[in-house]
Design a protein around this nucleic acid. Structure first.
Lengths: 353, 353
DNA sequence: CTGAAAGCGCTTACAG
DNA sequence: CTGAAAGCGCTTACAG
């Protein structure tokens, strides 16, 4: 670990830092109180009420003189005024913060959801706040409680293990909840059409390996979660459509961690089938690692898309969830009046490469 | 798009939703005011001050009767009380929120930083808040301003285009700033040792293609950003160490988007060199797409690691940045007294597979 | 040892 | 049309 003055490693600029330390040191606390609307009111020769209205944009209805408004805005700028949004939220009972709870950031699906959620939230004038809870049910409610404490306007529970618990906790504080990716019974949900996505991908795989070839091996996910259950149902129906059966032994719901998938394959009690249906890119990491270390090159399909996994030679197809539609639909549901606790399903896109 | 009652698609559970709509409707607003410390004080027959102390944990120093404390805690629980953290922060001038600004969520490096940042923040009793700014300098300061408005205790600017602007904006409100991944001159920074990581990877590539083979092609990144400049310097020095020169024409700093990398290769004015040094997994996406559509299989090395890209046949090596060390070092710097604006560099890990 | 009171920085009906 | 005043839900010195 190297420790050095700024850019000193860089041959291009050996210049030393001069002001920085003092600057950051002298600002803030030592400079005394932060500027408030009272300071600005005094400076501008008007009332705090007027300043408040001008600075939060509600002044058009207040018929405040254009010149006063401009003066106040200029002074605020010059003073480096930053409205205290906590105080504002406390008083007005609207935080303008929208929270999202997310399991992980380790795949493109959740990453894309996070980015689009933030963009859409900002477009509505809301401040987006995301927190990731590692698929841990306790952490999920703890994070929800925290967001409730900060009085967010709404919580979107993405891929939550127990969305209904979050909904009930939030409801007790008068805060709405919406479910994304994994459905709940007590709040509106938007999820992918897992059944049809999985069914199409399974048909593609079965037709690739040919009619005489046995059943697929399903790898990954939690047997208890709604999406995995639906995908298994889709895979099973695809088998049936081709006159095959999917035995229980061929369904390895070993969880989402990649090691789990790898060791599930290592300890398989029978010959590995001719093609694999992998239930997430995370599980796929373990599957491909297992193939590489066992000299196998089995065709696979994966529910969820990743740009590099798509380029692997064994890849037959990937199901890409329609993040744009998912996120925009969840924002539409924010506007629904009462909030029927039904679920909207969004079709997936099958990417064959 | 299907819209349906919960689970009605699912053959396993056709049960209809009964209570949900009413439950979420009757809670909150319609139920009247949310519970406050005054309500609880009345219920418990004690003072709001005592309730406040008990519920925020400061009561040990206040020698409050064990029984009173327990009674208050039970009542709070029963009433579904959620402390208003805004009010608490406003009064105590400590929000206990720590903010992070992040460019994107579309690669494993930033995803891992986000997860570890959150874990470490929670371990310190801080509420982590991340917001992603799409490499847009204006959005970066806008997001910083927003966080300042909510009076976060500290902002960590990760991979920021103009960290110093964020530092100055925050300093005006008395809020500290720390830089991660990309350094600034006006706040403490923690970054990867880009020079040595790039140099080692370039040596690996050069030795792979052999002594007679020409220079590498450097693809991706912004010429203006510190990390890219350092990596180019490392690649250049590696060439020199092998008695080669890296011509300017072989440095394609075409930005971070994958399309940019692809079209930079498409419009290359000379024959493509024998191996590529790719300056991020995002650029690598475009590079590999270009190779696939041009029937090329050039060995590449990439600065940044991705589990699937690592398995591509053309991959020679990937530089994995040490996220654990980066994040724990940035939290160490949070504890430093004044805040020297120097930069600490963390060595990278070269993954050859 | 405990509670009453002031005040954090805003917003917003309300009276002038 | 504008400003004084009350109050959002807490915390914390301070007096009893």
């Amino acid at each position: 670990m190297l420790r050095q003055a700024f850019f000193s490693v860089n041959a291009q600029s050996v210049k030393q830092v001069e002001t920085s330390a003092q600057v950051s040191g002298s600002q803030g606390k030592s400079q005394g109180r932060r500027t408030t609307i009272y300071d600005i009111a005094e400076l501008a020769g008007t009332s705090p009420s007027a300043v408040s209205a001008i600075l939060n944009g509600s002044w058009k209805k207040r018929r405040i003189a254009e010149t006063t408004a401009q003066r106040v805005i200029d002074i605020a700028e010059a003073e480096g005024y930053a409205r205290n949004l906590q105080a504002s939220a406390l008083r007005s009972d609207r935080s303008n913060v929208i929270g999202m709870i997310m399991p992980k950031y380790d795949n493109r699906y959740f990453g894309a959801i996070a980015e689009q959620f933030e963009a859409k939230a900002r477009a509505r004038g809301l401040f987006p706040v995301i927190t990731c809870t590692e698929r841990d049910p306790e952490l999920e409610v703890a994070a929800a409680r925290e967001m409730i404490g900060y009085r967010v306007d709404c919580i979107i529970a993405t891929g939550a293990t127990d969305p209904d618990r979050i909904t009930r906790t939030a409801a007790a504080a008068g805060i709405r909840t919406l479910n994304l990716d994994l459905p709940g019974r007590e709040a509106p949900s938007v999820i992918s059409d897992n059944y049809n996505g999985a069914r199409e991908l399974a048909l593609l795989l079965l037709d690739r390996i040919g009619p005489a070839s046995g059943p697929l091996l399903f790898v990954g996910g939690r047997g208890t979660d709604h999406n995995t259950a639906e995908r298994i149902r889709g895979v099973r129906d695809a088998h049936e459509a081709r006159g095959l059966a999917l035995p229980e032994s061929h369904v390895l719901t070993c969880g989402y961690a990649s090691d789990k998938a790898q060791s599930a394959l290592d300890t398989l009690a029978f010959d590995v089938p001719e093609a694999l249906f992998v239930n997430s890119t995370i599980s796929l990491e373990g599957v491909v690692r297992w193939m590489r270390s066992n000299g196998q090159t089995l065709p696979f399909g994966c529910f969820d898309w990743d740009p590099f996994a798509a380029l692997l030679e064994e890849n037959v197809g990937m199901v890409k969830q329609d993040v744009t539609a998912l996120v925009s639909t969840i924002f539409d549901r924010l506007d629904e009046p009462s909030g029927e606790a039904d679920v909207i399903q969004i079709p997936c896109i099958l990417c064959t490469e």
